[in-house]
Design a protein around this nucleic acid. Structure first.
Lengths: 339, 339
DNA sequence: AATACTTTTGCATTCGAAGTCATTATTAAG
DNA sequence: CTTAATAATGACTTCGAATGCAAAAGTATT
């Protein structure tokens, strides 16, 4: 009385006095079935509690109805929200999310193995730092990929991105208007492509405003690393008047460290900007000035592009870039160097 | 040259000069294959790029290797971390996470439909408020379920929980030691079973210390709702000296509101405690006193129990409860009523 | 009422691996 | 060297739904 009691299309067919094909067709849209048999099948299916077996369907149709979503948990605090939005959007299109965590425990190779065997229809990769080699593998296996917030150089895979350059430029411009001279850049982990890009953009933007040779600190995107990096700097150097951080938690770490341990007021003595616009930024004592990513648009686009690639694999890869929107919080003020 | 080029076990068999069964056995552990054929098969499989098709395997073995994880995004800020831990642990046991979001968009019924058709091996439900009826349905379909942080009355499904009663009792005891008299309880959404349980525990614990008829405010677990609830209260009433909140973000909302708009110092004028021990609590300006859930243990147990139920479905359901650990932050101080 | 045309239907096959069982190769024991 | 026991192998069937195709039923036209 265990698993074998599952009702199959044959059972329904027999009970309804029709063929298995008929049952199958009833549960598929756009197949020609007479109203009479449709009803007959539907009622007996209901009585028996029949539900089509998705596995069997996958095997014959070669569509699994599953999309692999690969994420590296630490990389970006937005990911829970992104994941939820992606899931919702995919569900609307009848695709399910099969989750993969690209962390220390499971290497990329293991994950790729799994992805091949599970015959997923497509892959959405959240800023996991794929080498181009891995992306090529997806091509070999005919599995469409959409990269989320990752810049491709070879442009073999589609991707959706926030415009880091534009966003960071806005932030730097804001700071520059306040006549800041002593900058500090707090970059993310060097293994992360996104982090590196943000760093470059910051340097470029500052440079464009005439601020060359701005010192660079490195963190790992976490709150603690922001605190620590700023602490290290302050031990041996004089305070900057503005810190450009590669994400929000680090920025908040800097603010806390500055306020608590170095007697710096934000924004009076020190201006700090972040990036991403995570929801915690709204928490009151911070009111961080940052750039918010349009997550809804980006996730929707990621799904749309992926489905398009699934339907018509020959379509060329595409890149869609969104501008982030500046959120003027309360962490930027006029330059006020402490001598 | 599209999908049909997938290499099957037959292709490998032919190329290696053995039978399909042989190939199959090579990729299964514990089957008797001679070393010679194993190597032969393995090398040709490698050459051809053969990967076993998980879908076909699922169909015949009736094990999908997938576990459905159902979560409601808003309910608890811990969930991203829980999800990541569950995924990691399940991956170690060769199970994949198929994700379901129980939100406004997709109703429970749709999700259940999906779960039946996908033939998942089991389900982990994160505090989604299931009625007992739904749990019965899982029983009917022979799909083991483990509930995460949800109390079952009928006890037909296994569950892992943090001990709300004990945790909240610790917090209340801490406050009571500081001679607080004017309490406020900030409860979570009334639809949430967990929220209701936490509320009850708070009432009970306060009552045990001799504080009856403590006023109750309601929020929706979000930061904003905490702010707002406290704001509403303060408009018409005198300030309490202690607020017991049902989760951390609301507690932080209360703190911000109290500090910013009502000139209350925390912890000097107002003591606030939360619940959950989310990582953001470490952020410096807060240092919230709270109770932390042992997520690693709980997620590990959830997976272990689920797998056990999958292997031996006749085992009885079990309940495992963990004590949370008190985190003494800096938001609890001696009672200091403002007259 | 006979013809042509469209819609329904069922049969048989397919997807790709795994399990059953009988057969053969290999090793161990006598 | 024979017999008994074990290990390895392949032919065939199975899982459950989808689909091409041909036959059957239904509809429209004259």
């Amino acid at each position: 009385m265990d698993k074998k009691k599952r009702v199959t299309s044959y059972d329904v067919a027999k009970a309804a006095g029709v063929s298995q094909s008929a049952v199958s067709r009833v549960f598929l849209k756009g197949r020609s079935v007479s109203k009479k048999t449709r009803e007959k099948v539907l009622t007996t299916a209901n009585e028996l509690g029949y539900k089509p077996n998705a596995i069997a369907r996958m095997l014959i149709t070669k569509r699994s109805g599953m999309v692999a979503v690969i994420l590296s948990s630490r990389a970006n605090i937005n990911y829970p929200e992104v994941l939820s939005l992606l899931n919702k959007r995919l569900a609307e299109c009848n695709e399910r999310v099969l989750l993969f965590n690209l962390d220390d425990s499971e290497g990329l190779d293991e994950i790729l193995e799994q992805i091949w065997t599970f015959q997923v229809d497509g892959v959405i990769a959240l800023a996991a730092h794929f080498d181009n080699e891995s992306i090529e593998k997806f091509k070999d296996h005919n599995i469409p990929v959409v990269l989320y917030n990752r810049v491709v150089l070879g442009q073999t895979a589609s991707s959706v991105c926030v415009n880091h350059e534009q966003g960071i430029f806005q932030l730097v411009t804001l700071l520059d208007k306040q006549a800041h001279k002593d900058y500090l850049v707090l970059a993310g982990p060097t293994e992360s492509d996104v982090a590196n890009e943000r760093l470059e953009c910051a340097i470029k933007a500052l440079s464009a405003k005439g601020h060359k040779d701005v010192p660079i600190l490195y963190g790992d995107y976490s709150y603690d690393s922001g605190k620590q990096a700023f602490h290290q700097w302050m031990k041996d150097n004089k305070a900057p008047t503005a810190v450009v951080c590669s994400n929000d938690p680090m920025a908040i770490g800097v603010i806390d460290e500055a306020r608590r341990n170095w007697g710096l007021r934000v924004p009076e003595d020190l201006s700090v900007v972040g990036f991403d616009g995570v929801s915690a930024v709204a928490w009151h004592s911070y009111q961080l000035t940052t750039v918010k990513q349009p997550l809804e648009l980006m996730t929707k686009a990621a799904v749309d592009i992926l489905l398009e690639q699934i339907e018509t694999p020959d379509n060329p890869a595409q890149l869609r870039v969104w501008s982030g929107s500046l959120i003027e919080g309360n962490t930027v003020g006029p330059a006020n160097p402490k001598t």
